[in-house]
Each structure stands twice: as structure tokens, then as C-alpha cells.
Amino acid sequence: MSLTSSTLERYVDRISPVHALDARVKVLMTLGYILTLAFLPNGEWAALAGLAGLLWWGVWQARIGLGLVLRRAFVALPFALVAVSLVFARPGAPLFDLTIGPWQLTASDAGLIAFISVVIKSWLSVQAALMLIATTQVVDVFLALRAFRLPTVLVAVMAFAYRYLFVLIDEASRMLRARECRSAAHHGRRGGGSIGWRAAVVGQMVGTLFLRSYERSERIYVAMLSRGYRGEVRTLDTQPLDSRDRGTLIGVLATLALIIYAALVW
């Protein structure tokens, strides 16, 4: 029972046409998809429906279950509430009045359209990002970023961070659990100490975790040196894209371009 394995990792090992695509292709498709959403004017419902259809077709192809993707995509919901204000802030034809106490708010049609568009765009963007990570090994994403000429140091740091992320999250979880086990109170008496004390305890836990992480990195470094590390990060050369990769990439990007074109021209 690992405490921490990301729930998406389960899906990465499946076999599907989407999983089989090169990571570079999937990164480009994801970025293209999210950019298309971003450039789409508000209220283009047909285009949004087309984009949703495209994505869900991909989810179906990838055999990861639409339910999971839709559910996980609600992480962006808190920000949707910030966007509620758009309903009342945008100038436009008044739709209805909302009376709260002595105040009156007027919702506009343009505002409502902006709000709904923003929420749908955000929801679809999260789904696209989920798709990428549910069908691609993280390590392959790093290699793709390397292939896109991200600085080697940055990618190497990311890879190290990913390698030790779950180790340290486990350590943090065990500390939290040990703290929880000693967080007692008397019957009927209010326990828990002051807020300042609680913050100090967390600070001490952070300090402990820092020292252990720091010392771990020193051990890692020694282990690397003893295996011939000389300060440069080497990676295997990436394979060229095959025809299926290229075909899919061109097909998807062309579809996205078509959707944008249709939305802007019609």
C-alpha cells in the first residue's frame, strides 16, 4: 500500500494507440489543444463541442475511462467562482436582476457567455493535461522536453525531483502520521495548543525534512561520483518519429486549425 502513488500512474502501463504515440507528439498535441482553446473567442459553442468531441474520442481511444477524466478535471472548480463575477461585470444586455439585501446585481448576456466559456475552456484544458499524463510515462515527457531544447540542467533537475518526490512525500506522510498519533486531548478539554505553537511544530518538521533531504542529496552525489559522474548529464538520443506519430500529429493539429478557422470565419 504505497501512500502516495499518483492515481494516474495506474493508467500509464495500458496498451492503446494513444499510449503508443511518441511523447513528443503527445506533448505537442496537448499544447496545441490548450492553445486552441485559449484562442477561441467566447461563446463559440459549436467549436467547443468539436474540441470536447476530439478530446473524448482520444480518451476513448486511450481506454482510460471518461469518468475518471471528467471527475479529476474538477480541480479547477475553485477558480470558476472567481469567474462568476464576470456574469455581473461584463457590459451587455441585462438578463436578470439579483437582489441581495439592499443591493441589486444585474447579470448581462455577454457576462454569462464569458463565464460559461471560461469554465468550459478550463475544464477541457485540465482534461487534456490529464490525458497526457495518464497515457505517457513521466520520464518520456522529460525526454520530450529535452528534445524541445529545454536546458539540460533544468530537465535533469526535474528528473531528480521526480525520482525523489514520492520518497520525500512518503517521509512527510509518515511524519504527519506520527504527529497525528500523539495529537491527544483530555475528555472535555480543548487541546491542540496555540496557532503559533502549531506553526512552529510544522516549521520544525519542515526543517527536519530539509536536513534529511540535504543529507540524502549528498549521499546521492557520492553514489553518482562513484559511478563515474563528472558533472554533465547524459541522455540517450531520442528515436526519430515514425510515420504513425507524424500522421497523428499532423491530423490533430490540422483539425485544431480547422476548428479555430471555422470559429473565427463563420
Binding site: F160, V167, M224
Partner: peptide
């Protein structure tokens, strides 16, 4: 590289 990677995880 190892230090910053581990620090990011930290």
C-alpha cells in the same frame, strides 16, 4: 543537479 532536484522534491 542532485541537490536542486532533491530540494525541489523537498
Amino acid at each position: 543537479v542532485p541537490l536542486m532536484g532533491v530540494m525541489a522534491a523537498f
